[in-house]
Simulated scan of single mutants.
Amino acid sequence: MRTAVVGGNGKTGRAVRDALARRGVDSVSIGRGEWPTLASAMAGCESAYLIAPNLHPDEPAYVAEALAAMRTAGVTRVVYHSVASPYAPQMPHHLGKARSEDLVRRSGLSWTILQPGAYLQNLDLGADLAVPYDVHAVFGFADLGEVGEAAGVVLTEDGHVGATYELASRVASPADLAAETGHRAARVEVAVDHPWLRAMFDYYDRHGLPVGTRPLSMLLGRP
């Protein structure tokens, strides 16, 4: 079995490739340089893990092009890396993933969708924590390595075709996480140029981003 990891040079792609390697699965990393010849780059791959660049201005178009290349290359299995709560009208980049999920479901390929929460690794938990939103907002945080392991499970084991899984390792607020390591958390105002980021922080202020932990526990075989 050989798997293409589209977007495989970023932190998520590396985590997925490492997890596949531990399962004895060969993978090929496909970055932006291979995009003009995407179908050729995926030749010989039976499956693909699809990650779009962060805040892509037109993720549905990106995903549609990738899916078309997969069909041309003979890929029959795709796992799409989405986001927790994709249908959130206040966050345009989440809506892009919701529309992309629809494309994946109608692609004609055997599909699975993973919807991870915010990565724990995005927070510096070794010092006082500063975030541009309410420190008491509740999130379902996902450990990057565990997301990679979940990807390895759904790509290599039976029973996951047609499934959509939200992924979180734990539920907490930034204030909770900081307190666990003896630090403080504070909200800080930062200059934000991208309107989608401002919309995201405003959403976090009001609603956080809760995600349940049971699906990830199930995929990793935890009691």
Rank of each mutant, 00 (worst) to 15 (best):
R2W: 13
T3I: 10
T3L: 03
N9D: 14
R14H: 09
R17C: 07
R17H: 05
D18K: 14
A19F: 00
L20Y: 04
A21G: 03
I30K: 00
P36L: 15
L38E: 09
A39Y: 01
A39W: 00
G44W: 01
E46A: 13
E46Y: 04
Y49V: 10
P53G: 08
H56G: 13
H56Q: 09
V63Q: 00
E65K: 06
M70F: 07
V78P: 00
V79R: 04
Y80E: 08
S82P: 10
S82H: 10
A84Q: 08
P86L: 02
P89V: 05
Q90R: 02
H94S: 09
E101H: 11
E101P: 07
G117L: 10
Y119I: 01
N122H: 11
D128W: 06
D128E: 09
V131Q: 01
H136S: 15
V138A: 11
F139H: 05
G140K: 06
A142E: 03
L144N: 05
G145N: 12
E146T: 07
V147K: 02
V147E: 02
G148P: 05
E149N: 08
A150G: 10
L155C: 04
E157D: 13
D158C: 10
D158V: 14
G159P: 00
A163M: 15
T164M: 06
Y165G: 11
R170V: 15
R170G: 15
D176V: 02
L177I: 07
L177C: 05
E180V: 06
T181E: 11
T181R: 08
G182L: 14
H183W: 06
R187N: 12
E189K: 05
D193M: 13
P195C: 15
M200R: 02
Y204E: 12
G208W: 09
P210M: 14
P210D: 14
P210I: 15
P210F: 11
R214E: 12
L216V: 03
L216C: 11
M218Q: 12
M218W: 09
L219G: 08
L220H: 02
R222M: 15
